[in-house]
């Protein structure tokens, strides 16, 4: 119940951002939200990201949410790019403790919700913020192995 206030507030903020942002021609309709939107075209109002640090994960540290997020990671086909267990495939590993765009809950939320350059689609039009937060909670719950491969430059 402690999440009931945070989640609607977030939905409102996100909806507001999307409504004001530039809309790529022909790709965004109410019935078929496209995950593949150009990052720079939709990142935020006036080209500024919402401040990640001010976003609060309503499920932070919640084991049950992390478990649900793990199932979502597979069922939403995140593993198709990032690999089973988020260990990396054509997309980067999300379990090696390295974050190109920041590893705070808020930054990871934004990566999923708004997409990132070099191919990460924006799932904000497809996934509800509550779902995105569960994915964030799952990823943040993954233990970073003691030894990880040398960082890829890609």
């Amino acid at each position: 119940m402690r999440y009931s206030l945070a989640v609607p507030a977030l939905v409102a903020a996100a909806a507001c951002t999307i409504a004001k942002g530039p809309v790529p021609a022909g790709s965004r309709t109410a019935t078929a939200p496209p995950p593949a939107i150009r990052y720079e075209q939709h990142i935020a109002v006036d080209g500024l990201e919402p401040p990640a640090t001010e976003m609060t994960n309503p499920y932070a540290g919640d084991a049950k949410s992390a478990e649900e997020g793990g199932k979502l990671f597979t069922s939403m086909n995140c593993d198709g790019c990032h690999g089973g267990g988020a260990t990396g495939f054509m997309g980067p590993s999300l379990s090696d403790g390295r974050w190109k765009y920041g590893g705070t809950d808020g930054a990871v939320f934004q990566s999923i919700y708004y997409g990132r350059p070099m191919g990460m689609p924006a799932f904000g039009g497809t996934l509800q913020p509550v779902i995105v937060w569960k994915l964030v909670t799952y990823l943040r719950s993954l233990p970073v192995p003691a030894a990880v491969p040398t960082q890829s430059w890609q």
Binding site: A32, P34, P35, A36, T74, S75, M76, N77, C78, D79, G80, C81, G84, P121, T126
Partner: peptide, 15 residues
């Protein structure tokens, strides 16, 4: 494993 198609995401479901 069984998988669901989401437009524009990988539709694979295999290791």
């Amino acid at each position: 494993e069984k998988t669901t198609r989401l437009r524009g995401t990988p539709y694979i479901g295999a290791t």
